[in-house]
Simulated scan of single mutants.
Amino acid sequence: MKPPHSHAHADAGTAALIGPHTVPRTRVDALLSAVPARDPETSRPESLARAERQRRRWATQVVVADELARRECAARGLKVPPEVAPERLLAVAESEVADLGSIVAAALAHSAAARTVLDALEAGQAVPEADVRDYYDRNRDRFLTPDALRRGVDPFGGTAPGDVLPYEDVREGVLEELRRAAGRRAFFGWLDQARSGVVYAHGHEHPGDPSHPDHEHRH
């Protein structure tokens, strides 16, 4: 996802602008207070300052994603979850960070609105039957029976009848997995587009924005 590069010319209390609407710094500060800083890898003052700058930029992205999601809920006629100042960020699994990136994973953990948008996008995904069957056929190792696993059966080297769970038994699970993956891709696409018009105050830019010297292109 491309990081936005724009900068806001706004008062000191503004972290970002979404059209004419401001995202106040107080929301970013509240999130930062709920997310403990990582143990520093170094005690060098310049490194600590850089880490804190990046942490603020990261938190701004999470707050902006929440605000964009709240607006998307309203636009879709979905119930907009109430805005609640975080006392602590919900735990984010390492697997979620690996799959989604730290910003999106944290946004989904922090923002009920973001989860509502994701659910709506996921529900709208139509997965063709041919794709479900193709996934089953190409990933037979995932559908070995417990007995076949104990015997070390090679799923691609010739299986006997009964070594692989029948398609009918696993179809719904595969369908849900593919729909969830498609929903996440749709969420990434929506967030990319929604963020394209956001303007950030100095010090609140995207962590991967190359216009600031210590950028990191990590999500």
Rank of each mutant, 00 (worst) to 15 (best):
K2L: 12
P3L: 02
P3E: 01
P4K: 04
H5L: 14
H7W: 11
H9G: 13
A12Y: 04
G13T: 01
A15S: 01
A15F: 00
I18D: 00
G19M: 02
P20D: 03
P20W: 02
T22S: 13
R25A: 14
L31W: 07
E41L: 15
E41G: 15
E41K: 15
T42F: 07
T42H: 08
S43W: 12
R44P: 09
E46N: 12
E46K: 13
L48W: 10
L48M: 09
A49E: 13
E52W: 11
R53W: 10
Q54L: 15
R55M: 00
R56W: 09
R57K: 06
W58R: 12
A59R: 03
Q61E: 13
V63C: 05
V63S: 06
V64Y: 07
D66V: 06
A69T: 08
R71H: 13
E72N: 09
E72M: 08
A74W: 07
A74N: 05
A74K: 08
A74H: 08
R76T: 09
V80R: 04
V84G: 09
A85V: 15
A85S: 14
R88G: 11
A91Y: 15
E94G: 11
S95N: 10
S95D: 15
D99M: 10
A106V: 05
A107W: 07
L108S: 02
A109H: 00
H110T: 07
S111F: 03
S111Q: 00
A113Q: 01
A113Y: 03
A114H: 04
R115Q: 06
T116S: 09
V117R: 04
L118A: 12
L118F: 15
L118T: 10
L118K: 13
D119V: 12
E122R: 15
E122Y: 08
G124W: 00
E129Y: 11
A130V: 13
D131I: 08
R133A: 14
N139C: 08
R140W: 14
A148M: 09
L149M: 13
R150D: 13
R150W: 13
V153T: 10
D154K: 04
G157I: 00
G157Q: 00
T159I: 05
T159C: 07
D163R: 03
D163N: 02
P166T: 00
E168L: 09
R171H: 10
R171E: 05
E172K: 10
E172Q: 12
G173V: 02
V174Y: 00
V174Q: 02
V174R: 00
V174N: 01
L175C: 06
L178P: 01
L178M: 00
R179A: 01
G183C: 02
G183A: 01
R184L: 14
G189W: 10
G189T: 13
A194C: 08
A194Y: 11
R195H: 12
V198L: 06
V199K: 06
Y200A: 06
A201V: 05
G203C: 00
H204N: 09
H204D: 07
H204S: 08
H206P: 05
P207E: 03
P210H: 04
P213C: 01
D214Y: 12
H217Y: 11
H217W: 13
